[in-house]
């Protein structure tokens, strides 16, 4: 079977510095790929290449067999949390509705068929009760669920999340990972995270990104090796076990 996402010898540079160099990556259907690496190592750049926000300087990026950007209607994306404007006057429901937007979304009112989909997505992440609240006034966890619902409402084949748990407390974090595990039955998931130890119990592949990339299957995941590759150095790690 063809990979869902395929990167071949991809390089990308801001000005003259290579952020990513010679990246090869295959993501198969229903993979749950964890992406780790230091800040500035190119994790977010990798996601942006996959969604076609930026074009590679060398190599090619294919998503569902088409060049990047062409299959974006089949991608759901949860951006880094602090990117949204907390003062923007918009209801949670309308944020989720954005996930159904397209280039021919004219006129202010919503289609009837959209209401059902949005309510269903909000129900899935259990935030139906705050649908009419202003987005900026929700708690961090509620906002994050709202953004996940926006990514899910179009029923995507690939779900891409950039540090979805960076600003929520640990109970919400566990909830979100459980949710993702459930979604993984239907969709391919790419997840950028700092928390190496935590995501390892959910993912089946891990990519260490630090200008270069190395990908491991679940059974070869070893903390020492991965942290060495991703962060170029040994550091101590506290392991924790949760009963999930």
């Amino acid at each position: 079977m063809n990979p869902v996402i395929k990167l071949e010898n991809v390089s990308f540079a801001y000005n003259t510095n290579y952020i990513l160099e010679n990246i090869n990556l295959n993501v198969e259907q229903n993979d749950f790929l964890g992406i780790i690496g230091p800040n500035g190592g190119g994790k977010t750049t990798l996601l942006k290449l996959i969604m076609g926000f930026i074009k590679p300087d060398k190599g090619k990026v294919e998503v569902f067999g088409k060049s990047s950007g062409k299959s974006n209607s089949r991608i759901g994306y949860v951006p880094q949390f602090n990117q949204t404007d907390k003062q923007f006057p918009i209801k949670a429901f309308d944020v989720v509705t954005m996930g159904l937007g397209h280039s021919k979304s004219f006129l202010p009112w919503n289609k009837k068929s959209d209401f059902g989909k949005v309510t269903e997505a909000m129900d899935f992440v259990s935030i139906t009760d705050i649908a009419d609240n202003t987005f900026g006034e929700l708690s961090g966890g509620q906002q994050q669920r709202c953004l996940i619902a926006r990514a899910l409402v179009s029923n995507p084949g690939i779900l891409i999340l950039d540090e979805p748990t960076a600003s929520v407390d640990s109970t919400v974090e566990v909830d979100i990972y459980k949710l993702l595990k459930k979604l993984n039955n239907d969709m391919t998931i790419l997840l950028v995270s700092h928390d190496v130890g935590f995501i390892s119990s959910y993912i089946n592949k891990i990519a260490c990104v630090n200008k270069e990339i190395s990908v491991h299957g679940r059974d070869e995941i070893s903390f020492d090796k991965i942290s060495h590759e991703a962060y170029h150095g040994d550091f101590s790690m506290i392991q924790h076990k949760c009963n999930l």
């Binding site: 969604m51 974006n72 951006p79 309308d94 954005m98 937007g101 979304s105 006129l107 179009s154």
Partner: peptide
């Protein structure tokens, strides 16, 4: 009135608007 939604999408989150083909 015609572009209400597209204006909001672009103002709230340019990247997501792009992802949705706007």
């Amino acid at each position: 009135i015609i572009l209400y939604k597209q204006f909001i999408y672009v103002c709230f989150d340019e990247e997501y608007a792009y992802l949705r083909g706007i």
